[in-house]
Amino acid sequence: MTVAAPEALIEAHDLHYTFAGGIPALSGVDFAVRSGARVALLGANGAGKTTVLLHLNGSLKPSRGTLRLGGEMAGYDRAALMRWRTRVGLVLQDPDDQLFAGTVYEDVSFGPLNLGLPEPDVRARVTFALEALGIADLAARPAHMLSFGQKRRAAIAGIVAMRPQVLLLDEPTAGLDPHGVGQLLATLDALAAAGTALVLSTHDVDLAYGWAETVALMERGRIIAEGPPETVLADDAVLARARLRRPLLIELAFQARAAGLISAQPFPRRAADLAAWLRSAQIVGA
């Protein structure tokens, strides 16, 4: 009995890209986004995370390599890009780059209007997106009167209103305080539960460890490791290459082992699970 693996929503193969001036940005990236994915693209500043995301929604065209969407080769003509961007939404890092003059409501309506939808549908989508991001009460505010966290949510709402199958987020937690990060992750969980595949880029190892189902570790325009966070982020060799450190919870697990407490696998993924994990840990020595 053979069951065909579900077609990947996006499949990038051997992507190469060079910036103006001949600086290589990507040198052979293979990457797939499947339905229901929760991927963290993890890497230090300058590793190439943003460039990968820009390729995944057709904003950049690779100088070598291929991209497939639902199994079909991606096209770069106007019509193909249109379809592409309705399916794959990208939220840029700085919300100021994507909020335009006018109110939050007007801004969120920008995408649906461009889709050429009739007005009632546009309004329904705007309402849906504002509620999904928990900013319905800010609808009439002009963008420049929002706090940073609110701007971030408004920018995401602008993409969510386009109902993409895949949502790409470039460093969505940058600049948010712990409370803001918590709110954002809760929103992302809700979107994932509703069936949106999520890819976010970050250099926060603790975030990636706690949130992602799959971690893709980037370094110098390559993905040097990919897999479940508890495997990838416990591999000191690849972490060192990527100039990152262990997540604190993994560090703790290693230290606990070094202290003579043999850890029970798997490592806890959330701080709240620490107590249970410590309790189940087998005590040696002491």
Binding site: L54, N57, S59, L81, M82, R85, T86, G89, L90, L92, D97, Q98, F100, F110, G111, N114, L115, G158, I159, M162
Partner: peptide
């Protein structure tokens, strides 16, 4: 900014 607008068609 232009990229962000193009993302939203």
């Amino acid at each position: 900014g232009r990229q962000a607008q193009a993302n939203r068609l």
